[in-house]
């Protein structure tokens, strides 16, 4: 199973809709980086509205993906993190300090727009 990555102008949109196992997460990391490389996108929105839980492994993969994309010149915004997920992450002691966030897909795109100054 693979997570679909959509291209919208010079942004990439990802909506994670299913329960993610470790393998899918790693696969997604690879897919996204190669897609950024191929398309030359400058911004990525990863929407997590339908994700019911994030454990330390998935949090690490997501955090890594943000840093890696940054290195490749693409800004990543995580959107739609659910309250239950946010509380669980804080309980786990994971604060994802370097990861930009937004309430929803729309505001995520606005945020990218502002930060990239386009």
């Amino acid at each position: 199973m693979r997570i679909p990555i959509l291209k919208l102008h010079h942004y990439l949109l990802v909506s994670i809709q299913t329960e993610i196992d470790d393998h899918t997460a790693i696969q997604f990391q690879e897919d996204l980086l190669s897609k950024i490389h191929k398309s030359g996108s400058s911004g990525v929105v990863i929407d997590l509205t339908s994700v019911e839980m994030i454990d330390s492994f998935i949090a690490k993969v997501l955090g890594d993906v943000v840093t890696m994309s940054d290195l490749m010149g693409a800004k990543v915004v995580l959107t739609g993190i659910q309250p239950a997920v946010a509380i669980t992450l804080i309980d786990l002691g994971i604060h994802m300090k370097n990861v930009p966030t937004a309430l929803n897909l729309e505001q995520g795109l606005t945020k990218l727009h502002q930060e990239l100054g386009e």
Binding site: L78, I81, Q82, A86, I90, H95, M96, T101, L103
Partner: peptide, 12 residues
Amino acid sequence: IQAAEAVRLIGS
């Protein structure tokens, strides 16, 4: 502090 950090995670 925890509440404020959780608020940041949901994007606010």
